[in-house]
Design a protein around this nucleic acid. Structure first.
Lengths: 181, 181
DNA sequence: GCAGTTCTTGACCGCCCGGTCAAGTGACCG
DNA sequence: CGGTCACTTGACCGGGCGGTCAAGAACTGC
């Protein structure tokens, strides 16, 4: 699965053939179809694992924090750190969003993560720390957008460290959800 | 080209065959290869046209405005409006970002648009309206991330109107670049 | 050492892909 | 009217695809 992940990430899902994966692994084709029903299923399994792993990382990061705003910050930082360590998985997540076959599976995982952020935003609104006319869902997705795009641009394309980028992401997002104007 | 765009957007680039495009159009395969060198070239041409069109729209929107912050706002609104009208093109842009063959061509266009935003941000910093320790490039990309993700989530997936979403995008982004905290 | 089960092999299958090209077709020009 | 040439056709090609399967190999429990 690790090898498949890297091939898919480097060349794309469709251009990567099952033959290529198995010969790269030095095994016969039968092995592949013994463990997976199809190429598609391999991809879905990789996707599910990636989402599970990211979520675990986020949960760990915020486990010991009660303040909702701090939880959002820690969640963002954890996501960027994970993304830095799992470029390949992240690319596949991005690809999955463009393919009708995979968007369903992708969104199921994505929704769970967003729901967490929404919860924190709502809590912060209840505490009067975010304007109460704000739409929690929208703010959550806006933050996801910032984190995703800055990860791709500054960490992947420009090779910057996740820590520094995370500082900027957090700063921008917190101004976005807390700011006055 | 319009038909190709819609097939690519609906089914994906690889799953769409040249045969499918020409039979859908009711013409022979020779016609396709008379006007295009390859399937790849068709895609690149679509991509280039889309980027050109989006940029024209942005330029028109900000042409008569001098204030840099207002220009950013109008640029964001124009982008969302364009995205609402050109879902297919936007999907292909998103896909192009995931395919090594196309990222080069994509980035060339993307960089130009970002450079515009960067210019406005720098101007706003010079006017003392944005903190002068801010990184213009980062702020510009953050806004692109917000606009792109909210477009996909709220306009494409949930079918909301571009106008309303644009209000939220602008509000979030302006807090993000102007806000105090 | 046998039987049964779990894994592994790679030749093979049918299919369809991107791309080619010989053979037109018909509008235009002298 | 004949010749030219921009365009169109669709059968065809080589190749590679996802997926199958008969034939083992390797391990188990007995």
């Amino acid at each position: 699965m690790a090898f498949g992940t890297s091939r898919f990430a480097e060349q794309g899902y469709h251009p990567t053939s099952v033959s290529e994966i198995v010969t790269g692994l030095g095994v016969g084709k039968g092995v592949f179809y013994w463990y997976f029903d199809s190429k598609e299923q391999l991809f879905l399994e990789i996707l599910r694992d990636a989402q599970t792993d990211l979520r675990r990382r986020q949960q760990q990061a915020i486990a010991e924090e009660d303040d909702p705003i701090r939880r959002i910050e820690l969640g963002l930082r954890a996501s960027l750190a994970w993304a830095e360590e799992h470029r390949d998985h992240n690319r596949l997540i991005q690809f999955a969003a463009t393919e009708a076959t995979f968007v369903g599976a992708l969104r199921r995982g994505q929704d769970i993560a967003v729901a967490d952020v929404v919860r924190h935003v709502k809590e912060a609104i209840a505490q009067g720390r975010i304007r109460d006319d704000a739409d929690p869902d929208l703010l959550a997705h806006a933050m996801v957008g910032v984190a995703g795009h800055l990860t791709r641009t500054f960490i992947y394309e420009r090779g910057e460290a996740a820590g520094g980028v995370a500082d900027s992401v957090v700063a921008f997002c917190l101004r976005g959800i807390l700011g006055d104007p």
